[in-house]
Design a protein around this nucleic acid. Sequence first.
DNA 1: TCCATTATATTGGTATGCCAAATTTGAATT
DNA 2: AATTCAAATTTGGCATACCAATATAATGGA
Lengths: 240, 240
Amino acid sequence: MAERLYREIGEKIKLEIIKSKLKVGDKLPTERIYAELFGVSRTLVREAFIMLEIEKLIEVKKGSGSYLKSQISNQQSSKISDVGPFELLQARQVLESSIAACAAHSITKADLNALQVTLDLESSELNSVEKANAADRDFHLLIAKATQNTLLLDTATRLWDMRDENSMWQQLHERIKDSSYHGKWLDDHQQVFDQLRKRNAEGARQAMWQHLENVKQTLFELSDTDAPNFDGYLFANPQH
Amino acid sequence: MAERLYREIGEKIKLEIIKSKLKVGDKLPTERIYAELFGVSRTLVREAFIMLEIEKLIEVKKGSGSYLKSQISNQQSSKISDVGPFELLQARQVLESSIAACAAHSITKADLNALQVTLDLESSELNSVEKANAADRDFHLLIAKATQNTLLLDTATRLWDMRDENSMWQQLHERIKDSSYHGKWLDDHQQVFDQLRKRNAEGARQAMWQHLENVKQTLFELSDTDAPNFDGYLFANPQH
DNA sequence: TCCATTATATTGGTATGCCAAATTTGAATT
DNA sequence: AATTCAAATTTGGCATACCAATATAATGGA
């Protein structure tokens, strides 16, 4: 474990808030009260409050007190980051296919050149898993960047980074290393690129969708565990 | 202003990291060094470090030091929340239309019922702006929830909440109050609902796209300032 | 020379104490 | 009884001091 103490305190405070049924706008117990309650110094409670403040759950006002800013859900209480890899891929499929379609309208020659460079890098770095992975990330994020929309890039980045935080993905990633799937995905990337160069929005959407469909399929084959429930959407194509 | 000092220190540290060109994995200067550099106590630097840690930018290891966890972009450096309302709406249009299409596959009768209730609420609460606004939020987020995908709901929620943090939106919102646009948007919502009920994915996508197109159009009319650059995408329909 | 062991220094972790802003209280005044 | 204003209290802000874990340097034996 060896987790920093302020986090532990912070989680305890969240539970305390839930238990005492505080509503948005309500005043929280003071730092000193929590300190005594948990048997720690006020410094630690203060750090925990900062954590909650950064998470936008509370608002701290000097001389007045701290106030509940948004309702605490059980999800926020524990770790949200550990969603299944299939759920993550599905989200990426839905969102990134649209981002690719959007990018097809706004992509510039410079963007296309950058993508080309990344594609070349991917094909030349098939041996180094780390390099190939970085290039993979670049490819997807460059497309999001080509939309010229900060929030779309931000969304794509957030989803990608979640992948690396996901514990189950780590395990699956080990097996992907051994396989030769990066070669297959390279073809996928090439097709997405071709559609973008033609500025074909629907083609780009389709290609990106199919690419992530293939990734899901691969992951499915590699995982010996039972597949989580996809509600019949795993292999469904929204284009149909 | 009256912002809490640790935030200020945290931003300064981010700039300092960028200026010194630290890479992911590199070791940061110690808390004591920053404390002396900024002329504050180590406590404040420590609080700033906690802020960066919560933001997943750094990792703090007792007895060893703190390390850069992910590359700091200029966006994370300053306030990311203050993107233009049009950029935000464009992102919502791209993403939420796909989310609606996805939801059309997985939506349950219970979801549809909840949506119906929200629609009724919207039409009955046309006078109370606050209530109508809450219902509006519920409508959009219920659809995201109907995808059964945590991350899609999370994404939609994030985008919506950004709206309220956006300073320019606040001003525009004042004028929307006076207008009767909520009535028009109610029709849009009804159409989205109809497509979802028919489980028509492409219809839902189209309807949601058009709805947010209308919102953009309204905002465009209401804002007397020159429109930001949309790169010809503002009125483009990816379905074309 | 190399490796294991111990001592020292470095670095983050926690507690205590005092300061400043905000709030509350209550006495004085009308 | 209502209002005003100042003193006291409450509450978060910040700094200093010491503790504990880690890393590094020094030491000594093989």
